[in-house]
Amino acid sequence: MVEPTVIRGRPFEWGTRTYLMGILNVTPDSFSDGGSFDTPDAALLRAGDMVGAGADLIDVGGQSTRPGAAVVSLETELDRVIPVVERLRKQAGPVGDAVISVDTTRAAVAKAAVEAGADLINDISGGTYDPEMLPTAVALGVPIALMHIRGTPQTMQTLTDYRDLMGEIREFLADRTQAAIAAGIDRAHIILDPGIGFAKNSDQNLEILRELPRVRSLGFPLLVGPSRKSFIGNILDRPDPKRRVWGTAAACVAAIVGGADILRIHDVAELCDVARVADAIYRK
């Protein structure tokens, strides 16, 4: 059993149930919902809907990480993220009490977001883009999710040639956990993500879902994000990401069977039902 992680005063009991991380992209150019929630008012309404539908965490991101996305300035990312985190934290009731994650690769954004009320750092680079990220997580005393990636969102889809896909993902994440521990991050504050869709092609994403136990065997909670991804669209011949909800549901069940602890998703209401039933079948 993986040691529980306490976030915002509540224990996350890994392995006992699936936790849902609702995606809140406050960007104009994210692959699925860019421009839909890029004002504080729209973001607040979206967060309320997701919490009401069963989200355990809200993941706020101000930099699109879709393939080929342009890098925004630090000031732009701060301007997008911090007002939303502040507004969320000031709300009364379940929204104001929600666990907030900040989806960023910049230590300065992570620091400002946590100071504004965020509880968790979600770094798609595994702490490799910014050398200050791991020390910042230590200083802030918050958990961090470390994801596998090659290259950057601008180059990653040209870097899908692996000798041993799962072995290399596992090696990268093992290395990043050791770096995090060496920096002073508590083991109970580390979450791992195999990076579905990041420097992987469609067949490789399916292999990750089949082989998730190899990543889970590292002994840390596992975050998986298949939501609306292009490999699902390829299988279903659905170019519109918003029409991939039930394909996403199938991928999420596979992730649960493979040991995923957190699912990062767009369609919270539908996937909440899916996760509850899958948990009843597969978790003991």
Rank of each mutant, 00 (worst) to 15 (best):
Ile82Gln: 00
Gly61Phe: 11
Arg238Met: 14
Gln63His: 13
Leu20Trp: 05
Ala188Pro: 00
Gln178Asp: 14
Ala260Gly: 05
Val114Gly: 01
Pro28Leu: 08
Thr158Ala: 15
Asn201Cys: 09
Asp38Lys: 05
Ile169Gln: 05
Leu236Val: 13
Asn201Lys: 13
Val142Asp: 02
Gly15Gln: 08
Ile181Glu: 12
Val95Pro: 03
Gly117Asp: 08
Arg46His: 14
Glu211Leu: 12
Ala110Thr: 03
Asp97Trp: 04
Arg8Leu: 05
Ser32Ala: 15
Ala255Pro: 11
Val274Gln: 03
His189Met: 11
Leu192Gly: 01
Pro221Thr: 05
Lys242Val: 05
Pro221Tyr: 03
Val257Asn: 02
Thr16Met: 09
Ala179Trp: 08
Thr18Ile: 11
Lys200Trp: 08
Ala53Gln: 13
Ala275His: 07
Ala199Ser: 15
Asn122Leu: 01
Ala250Arg: 11
Glu207Lys: 12
Leu206Tyr: 14
Leu212Asn: 01
Asp56Trp: 02
Leu236Asp: 15
Gln204Asp: 04
Asp103Ala: 12
Tyr162Gln: 11
Ile82Val: 14
Glu168Cys: 06
Glu77Arg: 04
Asp29His: 08
Thr105Arg: 13
Ser64His: 11
Pro194Leu: 04
Arg276Asn: 14
Lys90Tyr: 01
Gly117Glu: 09
Phe231Gln: 11
Gly247Cys: 12
Gly62Glu: 06
Phe172Leu: 02
Ala269His: 12
Val253Leu: 06
Glu132Asn: 14
Gly54Lys: 08
Gly96Ile: 09
Thr76Lys: 09
Gly62Met: 09
His189Ala: 13
Leu134Arg: 02
Asp240Phe: 07
Gln204Lys: 02
Tyr162Asp: 11
Ile100Arg: 01
Thr128Gln: 14
Ile190Ala: 08
Val51Met: 02
Ala137Asp: 02
Arg80Trp: 00
Leu88Ser: 04
Val253Ser: 04
Arg163Pro: 00
Leu120Gln: 02
Asp237Trp: 10
Gln178Gly: 00
Ser230Met: 14
Gly9Asn: 03
Leu263Ile: 12
Arg89Leu: 11
Tyr162Trp: 13
Arg87Gly: 12
Leu146Gln: 01
Asp119Arg: 10
Gly225Tyr: 00
Asn25Arg: 07
Lys90Glu: 15
Ile232Asn: 09
Arg46Gly: 09
Val257Thr: 12
Val95His: 08
Trp14Asp: 03
Gly127Arg: 07
Glu115His: 14
Thr104Ser: 10
Ile185Asp: 07
Arg264Leu: 09
Ala251Ile: 10
Ala47Cys: 10
Arg106Ser: 05
Asp103His: 12
Gly141Arg: 12
Asp273Gln: 15
Ala251Tyr: 03
Ser217Cys: 03
Leu120Ser: 05
Asp103Trp: 11
Gly22Thr: 07
Ala113Lys: 02
Ala107Phe: 03
Pro83Ile: 03
Ile23Met: 10
Val138Ser: 07
Ala183Trp: 03
Ile262Ser: 06
Arg264Cys: 09
Val71Cys: 00
Arg176Met: 13
Leu74Asn: 08
Val72Tyr: 12
Val274Asp: 07
Ile196Lys: 06
Ile235Gly: 13
Asn205Trp: 05
